[in-house]
């Protein structure tokens, strides 16, 4: 008789918080259930309290991996974008989140890992490693990555400069890149405020772009940053006109 093959979880010896800090995380049916419950509550909250409207949902690719790129002025940004995606796909959507902010204290780690399904992005010392992590993630068909190329929440609500990392990551990658603009999130919940205010939030989703033909390098990275920034600025102007 052949012995059975067991497949013990790799993080079996890690404590609960360590397990949530690791990436990629092992699948966990209880975490997934909690995430779905949280998503349902957050969607209702965004709809009622912030009267969230989503424009351009048809621009989201229906299958396969893709990258979402957005402006960043509030915690509501990621939540609004997550609310635009189908519930069933949430466990495969990974917003890149600052490791030095979201993965420090146990409560923040729990929210980032369970509710948001965040990828811990080390923006201080290990940028290259973090970009590799993003790349590996996208190699797996069906995974979705959400990046805020400004690297931090804007203090003024205006779109800041893009870090070159996003360009380095996307050059030569044959995947759709979807620009998004979240309007009103800054007014509703700016960085300086503890709690969100009941302001209207709107999410605009632009047409996907592709950078497969670009050769990986500094020039391509800058070109991608420019192109994406322009696209997001255009969406922002569009939002302002409405």
């Amino acid at each position: 008789m052949e012995p059975w093959h067991y497949d013990t979880a790799e993080d079996i010896e890690a404590s609960l918080v360590e397990r949530l800090r690791r990436f990629p995380r092992e699948p966990d049916i209880l975490v997934y259930s909690a995430r779905l419950a949280a998503a349902a509550i957050l969607r209702a909250w965004l709809k009622v309290y912030h009267r969230l409207r989503i424009v351009g949902r048809e621009n989201l690719p229906r299958e396969g991996s893709f990258v979402l790129v957005a402006n960043h002025a509030s915690h509501l940004d990621a939540l609004s974008i997550l609310a635009a995606l189908p519930m069933g796909s949430l466990h495969r959507v990974f917003p890149a989140a600052a490791k030095d902010f979201f993965f420090v204290s146990p409560p923040r780690t729990a929210v980032a890992a369970v509710v948001v399904n965040a990828l811990p992005f080390d923006r201080e010392t290990n940028i290259r490693q973090s970009l590799n992590l993003c790349r590996q993630l996208l190699d797996n068909p069906g995974n979705v990555l959400l990046i805020f190329p400004e690297g931090t929440r804007s203090m003024t609500g205006r779109l800041g400069d893009f870090k070159p990392g996003v360009g380095l990551l996307l050059a030569g990658v044959d995947l759709p890149v979807v620009p998004c603009y979240v309007a009103g999130a800054f007014e509703a919940w700016p960085k300086a405020k503890r709690f969100p205010r009941p302001r209207r939030v709107r999410l605009l989703i632009g047409e996907p772009r592709r950078y497969a033909e670009l050769k990986r390098g500094k020039e391509a990275a800058l070109a991608i940053c420019h192109d994406l920034r322009d696209a997001i600025v255009a969406l922002g102007e569009h939002a302002g006109r409405r």
Binding site: H5, Y6, D7, T8, A9, I12, E26, P27, D28, I29
Partner: peptide, 10 residues
Amino acid sequence: ARATGLYRDW
């Protein structure tokens, strides 16, 4: 379930 690998079978 995590120790035996059963956790992959949802």
